[in-house]
Design a protein around this nucleic acid. Structure first.
Lengths: 118, 118
DNA sequence: CGGGATCCCCAATGATACTG
DNA sequence: CAGTATCATTGGGGATCCCG
C-alpha cells in the first residue's frame, strides 16, 4: 500500500488558511498538479487508466497513479477494479466530483479571456 | 531585479496541455501556491504589502514577494509604488484579475460542500 | 494492463541577514 | 516599510525496474 501524505497538495502553512477559507481549501484540493486535467477528462464519463494516460500524454505512470489515489482519497473520483485478465480499472467522478463542473467552466472562460491579453 | 522563471507554477509537461486546454491554463495561473489566497484578499480592494503579509499569517516575505511578482507579470495584479518615506506599495487586481470572482465563488461553494462529506 | 518499489535530482521554499 | 541576497533544505516528480 502506498503511503499517501496527509495533504492534498503542498501547502506548508496554508493549512490554517484553508481551514477557514473554503475557496483556498478547494484550490488545494484540485489546484496544481494534474488533478484538474484529470477531472476535465472524467467529466465526460468514466475512463480507464490507460485512456487517461494517453490523454495526458506527458504524464508518467507513477504520477498518474499518485494523482488518482489522491483524488480517490479525497472522494472526488471512484476506482473500480474488474477481476479480469488483463486487468481493467475504471475511474469515474463521484457526485461531488461532478459538481466541479461549474468551476471548470468558469476556469475555461477566464482562461480564454486571459490568453487574449497575453 | 529578481529573476522570475518562465512558468507560472510548476508544470513540467503540462505546458502542452495548457496550450490547448484553457481550464488547465487558468489553473496553472492561479492554482496552487498562494496565488489564489492573495487574489481572494485583493478582491475586496487594494492592499499593502504588509497588510497581505498579515492576512496570510504564515507566509514569508520572500514567498509573498515572489508570488506578487508572478501575479504582476501575469497581469493579474498591479503594483503601485508611492514615493514616500516610509515606502508604501499597494497591490490591486487588474480588470482581468477581478474577473476571477466567479471562479472564486464557485470554488467557495464547492469547498463548503466538500468539507461536509469529509 | 495497471500498477508498486527504489533511487535520485533539482526546483520550490524556508531561514537568516541586510538595505534604500 | 517593503523588500533583496544568500545559503540550506526538502519533497515533488522523473527514470527505471519489477510484478500479479
Amino acid at each position: 500500500m502506498t503511503k499517501i501524505k496527509e495533504t492534498s497538495t503542498n501547502f506548508s502553512n496554508k493549512k490554517a488558511l484553508a481551514e477557514e477559507c473554503p475557496e483556498v481549501y478547494a484550490s488545494n484540493m484540485i489546484g496544481g498538479q494534474w488533478s484538474l486535467a484529470i477531472c476535465c477528462y472524467l467529466i465526460n464519463g468514466k475512463l480507464r487508466f490507460g485512456e487517461l494516460k494517453k490523454k495526458l500524454e506527458n504524464i508518467t505512470e507513477r504520477m498518474l497513479t499518485l494523482q488518482l489515489r489522491r483524488l480517490e482519497r479525497d472522494k472526488i473520483i471512484t476506482r473500480t477494479v474488474y477481476a479480469e485478465v488483463p486487468p481493467r480499472v475504471e475511474y469515474e467522478l463521484t457526485e461531488i466530483g461532478y459538481k466541479l463542473k461549474p468551476i471548470i467552466e468558469e476556469l475555461e472562460k477566464w482562461g480564454k479571456l486571459h490568453k487574449k491579453i497575453l
